[in-house]
Design a protein around this nucleic acid. Structure first.
Lengths: 266, 266
DNA sequence: ATGTCTTTGTGAACGCGTGCACAAAGATGG
DNA sequence: CCATCTTTGTGCACGCGTTCACAAAGACAT
């Protein structure tokens, strides 16, 4: 759902469906909250409500992990927290590098949710020499030149790309070349990676556009202000030119920053 | 997939599948890039490669929109850009408010991808009185007290929440109360919203955890360092206690900031 | 020990999304 | 005007994910 490569063998890793894996962190968060309130056990119904999912789905998800849980009682919170953490690989420490320390990169560096879940920001990397040495979130920024050495020295296998779109593929290649096998990409680009490397993408602009689509539908169909161009299905040359002439004025390519990413290039 | 409410009627809005809607922005981005290079037409094969998807999938996606495209030739880039933009509702201007101007909120405010795609940051809102009036990305931050008035005055229907987790639900309620019907949530919480309100969630921590899962699998199964606790399926009381005793020391609740969000509370 | 009551775990049905493979459509050249 | 060639649009099959509904399992009271 968020891969860079065209074909992915539907990575059903070990019998645990991908959709289930994506929900485990959700359950873990809800369970952690319960744990902090010293709640000993939860029923699937309660936990599902807290996680915002269907209870049957939750039970089936857990069934892939094993038969934890006691009929008539529910699930032991602490035990389940441990099992999910272990399944997700959160019982070990994952050093992470963030490349591109603009606004977004800095926000990520300051993100508390990383450290509290087994992730550790091992290094911050930026291409701007002026940023080198400057501390962000208590960690000094290092220059891109040292990227490979940083990766290897720290045994980093997870990289976060928060650079402008133009630099993302190049950074990605260097990360992969240095041994990184999992990438979280915030740059609005499709990354090409060799097999065996996982890419997940977070695209703010896309999320907003999806919301806009539903918003437009909610607003109803009657406010069809632009009745000019082809709403039908006749792609005649005439209507095309009309559309092409009418569209750009609206919002398409109004500036040279068509694909500027979430961070300042630095 | 990213809703806050438990039950959603699988919002297949108008015959256009949700999965297709989620890919339209991807196609739009690729098409915009082609448009800037003044490429007149593309084949489904080329465009699919640029967007990182299967060409058959792309053709089927477009078939939901109508029969744009010419057999033997391909798709007219400008025409398609317009059609997709219109379908996504990007031909109109969407005023957006961002609530919670911490690191992440500031990054979002500076995000160029918004303005270039029909979105306009109408206002920045923060609960910290000290931030009021201070300009971020050229826009003065306003105080939460005026939230309702800001929403109504600007006719805002899309809100972005970048506050700490603790404040998210409250902010959400006020946004919805003021008329917002689409929310992009960056706070690590499950939001409860009434029917008719769309919520999409972006959770950095969850993405990383999913990567960690696959990373752990790639590393193989042999490094099973913790051979102590239940790998089998016998949830006996004894093994539970052992697990519960061993786990918390690892990484679960090591601090009181279990769910700190992506921004400083301000 | 037995019965009742709660909650899990899962078999089975259904619907959505994906990808193949091909016929229809149109462009292009002779 | 006809033949050929490219590329679209889609019927079809398959697999994954979701949900229902219920039997099995265990807690708890008597």
């Amino acid at each position: 759902m968020a891969t860079g490569r065209t074909h992915r063998p539907a990575t059903r890793s070990r019998g645990i469906p991908e959709a289930t894996v994506a929900r485990l962190p959700l359950y873990l968060r809800a369970l952690t909250a319960l744990s902090e309130r010293s709640v000993p056990t939860v029923s699937s119904e309660e936990l599902a409500a807290a996680a915002g999912v269907n209870s049957a789905k939750l039970r089936k998800d857990f069934s892939y992990l094993g038969s934890y849980g006691t009929r008539g009682v529910g699930y032991d919170v602490e035990y389940l927290v441990y099992q999910i953490s272990r399944e997700l690989g959160l019982t070990q420490d994952w050093p992470v590098v963030i490349v591109g320390i603009g606004n977004l990169g800095a926000a990520l560096a300051n993100y508390g949710g990383f450290a509290s879940r087994g992730f550790r920001v091992a290094a911050l990397i930026d291409a701007d020499p002026a940023m080198a040495g400057k501390p962000v979130a208590g960690i000094p920024v290092q220059h891109t030149d040292d990227l490979e050495k940083i990766i290897e020295d720290n045994g980093v296998s997870i990289g976060v790309i928060a650079t402008p779109a133009g630099a993302a593929q190049q950074v990605c290649d260097r990360l992969v070349g240095a041994g990184v096998t999992s990438i979280l990409n915030f740059a609005p680009t499709v990354l090409s990676v060799p097999d065996g490397v996982d890419v997940r993408k977070v695209d703010l602009s896309i999320e907003l556009q999806i919301l806009a689509f539903h918003e437009q539908r909610k607003a109803g169909e009657e406010p069809a202000l632009e009745t000019a161009a082809g709403d039908g299905a006749q792609p005649a040359a005439a209507s095309r030119e009309a559309a092409a002439a009418a569209a750009p004025a609206a919002s398409a390519d109004q500036g040279p920053d068509g694909d500027v990413p979430a961070v300042m290039p630095a």
